[in-house]
Design a binder for these strands. Sequence first.
DNA 1: ATTAGCACTCCCTAATGATGAGTGCTAACA
DNA 2: TGTTAGCACTCATCATTAGGGAGTGCTAAT
Lengths: 341, 341
Amino acid sequence: MLTNRQLQILQVIVDDFVTSAQPVGSRQISKKDWITFSPATIRNEMADLEELGFLEKTHTSSGRVPSEKGYRFYVDHLLQPQIMSADEVTQIHSMFKTQIVEAEQLIRESANILSELTTYTTILLGPDVQKHKVKRFQIVPLSEQSAVAIIVTDNGHVENRLLTLPPAFSPSDIEKMVNILNERLIGVSLHDLHRKLEVEALAVLKQHVRTADDVIQSLIGISSGQNEGKIYYGGKTNMLNQPEFHDLNKVRMLMELMEKESQLQSLFKPNNTGIQIRIGSENNHLAMENCSVITASFLVGEEQHGSIAIIGPTRMDYQRVVTILDIMSRGLTNALSQRND
Amino acid sequence: MLTNRQLQILQVIVDDFVTSAQPVGSRQISKKDWITFSPATIRNEMADLEELGFLEKTHTSSGRVPSEKGYRFYVDHLLQPQIMSADEVTQIHSMFKTQIVEAEQLIRESANILSELTTYTTILLGPDVQKHKVKRFQIVPLSEQSAVAIIVTDNGHVENRLLTLPPAFSPSDIEKMVNILNERLIGVSLHDLHRKLEVEALAVLKQHVRTADDVIQSLIGISSGQNEGKIYYGGKTNMLNQPEFHDLNKVRMLMELMEKESQLQSLFKPNNTGIQIRIGSENNHLAMENCSVITASFLVGEEQHGSIAIIGPTRMDYQRVVTILDIMSRGLTNALSQRND
DNA sequence: ATTAGCACTCCCTAATGATGAGTGCTAACA
DNA sequence: TGTTAGCACTCATCATTAGGGAGTGCTAAT
């Protein structure tokens, strides 16, 4: 177990390093007026803390830098709720107070405000579309050969796809088809739709409408199309301001990672509710070795939830981000759940 | 007017510099086996070309580098159609040969292939939504208080927006409303829709449906929402590989520019058809001082068109990009116009 | 008109040394 | 016994220096 003095020192080192990005030395620590012991004592304690794995040196005669284990300990035991400036609180709340506009607009705005306030990068994952349930099918013919299929889900999401109609596919065929689909598939989640279409609907439709095969195939495409929630970014370029990303290679790896939408879910989605912090290698990804991710989730309606991830260097202002994220996720839950009652 | 020899030298310098990114000296030029004169002669000619403003030196005793004027002359007079490798041609054509999938998918894919083939960054502006014409209105109620309004356009684009219904807005009210809208507004372009809704529809609707005010206001929101075509990116990180972007500040400026969707239209949209090249300061933007943009447009259906922009350093392989872009824009026009017949 | 030769300029790199921040250790102190 | 002052040592950083090399401009010879 760490002594009280060691806790103090660890705390100062993390706090100082987070703001200065410079290794912190014994002298610097001793200057804090609530630190009563001398640099020499601090040096001894630091040597111990290093032996225990909480601190590291960048070279033999440098000051100390928190190790991953150090950060981990810090966020687990040393985090203190931060007081935010009145301005900032207003900035967040004002967003939620405005007449609730389009949900998407709100989410987009949130991502921006978050990255503005934190100076880090925000990734906001919209609720998983797969859980939405079908509310209505619709097929709108465009010409002899083409039409648009539309699926409206229970919470207002709209999926659509262009269909190529088989020759001699009449308007009445379309009507029949839409009716059958609406009879049988309302309430089915998009996730199940794929299978249901293939197994049940296809058989029934064939009885009523010839040449429905191709059309159904296209419809199936809708459900399997984009199978994850939408992704919103905020402050993508913020990371370029962090000294740890003056290395172009790191920047490139990170950017490439963020372009690959498929990976984002696994990397940035929290595995349960509440605020979660993943530090450096805990992210299990080479490009994120020097990054920490703080995630939170918010509710949309009753079941569905989106998630927010803030990505910064491991030398991140954890306290601040945690408080902001907490306020923000609650705010979003409020705003997005009341609209669906 | 430039002598034949000067033309040759300018051409070699641009070609060499484009591939090597190093200032090219007289000795290097004389090594080309179709160059018959000596380094000394070349030096004299280069001095003349510099005086004329086509070349620059990075320092007193360096080789020469093309100036903007040099590039401009090069693209205007020295560009020769490039022969592409069979592999590359196949890669492009194979994309168009596959069963025509979703238009959006095709465009997205194009952006990726383009940036892969060119090693530069691609910005692809989808057709201007404002020109689409309304094909069908639809309002799908979700609950007592909310509904989704859907507008399908003539070429299959779907716009949608959540509506908050006024209290006691009955299903029959919705039906009435949809009917009126469909009667009056089919064929109107999204661009005009805004005004028509405000001026004509509002008045008529008020007569038939009380409390339609708010709903109409929301509908108006659809048309004025995103008023430009969709934007697709390809190879955003490609520029990081170019030596001229080893400077983090330039990278940041460029990235920030590309995030600001509002600016993209004016910067990357060609002002008429055909392939256009804007070099360095011709882009009229600080962040693009060291960049060139090559743009082309493609047709979707009869009137509408999207545009492609390739962004690279001024030291860009103009010949190659121009040929690729030409193939690609024709291909896209073909693929996207036949589907609408 | 072209070219060989040569002095000159300037970038780039590696080597050198001085400076200073910070440490670990030892011995003195309370 | 825990704390602290003192000191030798390490290492990054920065400025300076020197050598090498690529390339030019000029002049004189062809």
